[in-house]
Amino acid sequence: MTANDQLDALTIAGCTYRSRLLVGTGKYQDFAQTRAAVDASGAQIVTVAIRRTNIGQNPGEPSLLDALPPSRFTILPNTAGCYNADDAVRTLRLARELLDGHDLVKLEVLGDPTTLFPNMVETLKAAETLVKDNFKVMVYCSDDPILAKQLEEIGCCAVMPLASLIGSGMGILNPWNLQIIIANAKVPVLVDAGVGTASDAAIAMELGCDGILMNTAIAAAKDPVLMASAMRKAVEAGREAFLAGRMPKKPYSASPSSPTTGMIGR
């Protein structure tokens, strides 16, 4: 029995999604490439950043949301570049206004510009304020199982531990912590940050993640549209393998797949 769309949908804050792959929109060559990659990935949820508009330059210039219309995609605004709770909250309030009241958001509060590791103290503060203000918060966090659970208890609708540093492509560095977080969580757990290639995505899904958010892995590939297609398959394959229940590992002895009797010449 294969996992069919209806039965294995991803549910986040009461909405269901066919795709467990979420993608960012940064680092692409242009909007056409962004849209082509998003389409190839099958992603329904895409993240965007919130920035000052350029005043007085090219008023006729197309904008990102012309290429990725909110009528077609779930636009997930992030708080990239925010280093404290106040800035993150302010950014998401503006984003909610920008997106006509849509309140599903990605919270990230960074600790330092070199590693982009989350500042978990400020993240917890921001999460509390945002949840009280009726946002549905998907939160980028460290892979600390206690903090991930605290974010869930505050009311975040999804926790998104990093696999490795943002944009590093280093893959799943601590599958053990990820599994602990998954075992303890009652909300979806999505790996966000550090995925580098298709096998990383498959590994995360095999561990039991509910979904994956990635940007650089696709945008910085030599052929982003092809990588987006690979990631789509990897997330689906990893999910099916997880649902299928893998065979046990046998570290010290083999188990033949062919009969051990009836061999000729004996």
Binding site: G24, T25, G26, K27, Y28, T34, T47, V48, A49, I50, R51, R52, T53, I55, S63, L64, L65, I75, P77, N78, A80, L94, A95, L98, L99, I166, G167, L213, M214, N215, T216
Partner: peptide, 10 residues
């Protein structure tokens, strides 16, 4: 005054 838009980001 601050005026913001959505731009590409991860």
């Amino acid at each position: 005054i601050e005026i913001v838009v959505a731009v590409g980001g991860g």
